[in-house]
Design a binder for these strands. Structure first.
Lengths: 107, 107
DNA sequence: CCAATACTGAACCAATAGGTTCAGTATTCA
DNA sequence: TGAATACTGAACCTATTGGTTCAGTATTGG
């Protein structure tokens, strides 16, 4: 089974898709606009956009032949939450030790 | 080309590997110990561990026939940094609007 | 109306991911 | 020493990923 978290993390594991997110953070854009800077066919970019869409990271509004994309960063929040639970492990050696004993007590 | 960030994010996109990280957060463990709860062959778990290792998320210490694994969460920091730059986008509607105009000004 | 624009779907491809089994190598315990 | 333990490598399999091309459908501007 594939959870939402899996899909979101998989979506942001690709550098092209992270770049698309970065672009959309500066404001909404059409697929063609987004595709322009990439050394890749429009179809290729289209596919990446669909992956982001399925992960809930992008909202699409069709008007006529144009598809305007908008960043929808909410799903990243869950990912941040998952990662930040390990925050104590990437500071000092001491923090790591402390975290270890804290979790031992909790158990 | 595959960046470190790509490898780390790809590593944590798999639920089995996230579970392994969760297990190691409670303290070091041998591969067999880690493998036990998973409905999967030891070889399968071994492969997952190697992925985590290549991403720098796990350190291994061999003593005799036993491989003791230890969490090395530092690489997650970069991922957190990447995600948190979009923090303003997952709060209120207002925040999103604000962020949008702020970035417009910067440009 | 015609041509250009903005996509989209289908078919294809090579590489990678995630799993398996089986056989092998060290290492340790009794 | 001999059996059990703790892995590891190789070969294999299927499904998915990330890309392509080509052909098609709407939509729009001149």
């Amino acid at each position: 089974m594939n959870t939402d978290l899996d899909n979101v993390i998989a979506a942001i594991s690709d550098p092209t898709r992270r770049a698309i997110i970065g672009r959309l953070a500066r404001g909404p854009a059409r697929i063609s606009d987004i595709a322009a800077p990439f050394p890749m066919s429009l179809t290729g970019v289209c596919k990446h956009v669909r992956v982001l869409e399925r992960a809930g990271l992008v909202r699409r509004t069709r008007e006529g032949r144009e598809n305007t994309l908008e960043l929808s960063a909410e799903p990243l929040r869950e990912v941040a939450r998952w990662i930040l639970q390990y925050e104590g492990f990437w500071n000092t050696r001491l923090d790591r030790l402390e975290q270890f004993f804290t979790s031992k007590q909790e158990k």
